[in-house]
Amino acid sequence: MKKIYAFESRCLGCRLCEVYCRTARFKSKDVVKAHKRKNITSAIIVEEVLGPNNISYFALQCRHCKNPKCIKACISGAMYKNDKGIVRNDSEKCVGCLSCILVCPFGVIKKNDDGKSVSKCDLCADFGEPFCVENCPNEAIKFLNEGEARALK
């Protein structure tokens, strides 16, 4: 299964991936329009790590675990794994208990502004290549099979 891999040595910390992740949910894919709406949260998070000489950045997003703890913890059956192995959240079923956030070992599920729903990466499964990967200016995040990623790391 293809997943998103972050390459720390190439990450600029510009956070454009976060901008495009928020935009990806909107049909028009218009950045300005998307950001005028409330209740949008990026499902990719750029972490800043202060080193001795410089700052390094690292993009984090859902790993689509083999045995996802979030699915086990979900009380309403909103969190599920689809036939392609992508862990998704059905917003119709989600009751906003936030149990998934508590159990996620990577901290990559985020509470939306309304406090009653969550955002997580679904690899932009509904419309092709993940939007963050497509718009990364430095090819620091790539959409790869595990083997390809291992060869590059």
């Binding site: 600029l12 910390g13 510009c14 956070r15 454009l16 976060e18 901008v19 950045v31 300005v32 950001h35």
Partner: peptide, 13 residues
């Protein structure tokens, strides 16, 4: 101002 979404990409770059 109508287009800026305060994403701070410019700040980071």
């Amino acid at each position: 101002g109508n287009r800026c979404i305060q994403c701070k990409v410019c700040v980071h770059q």
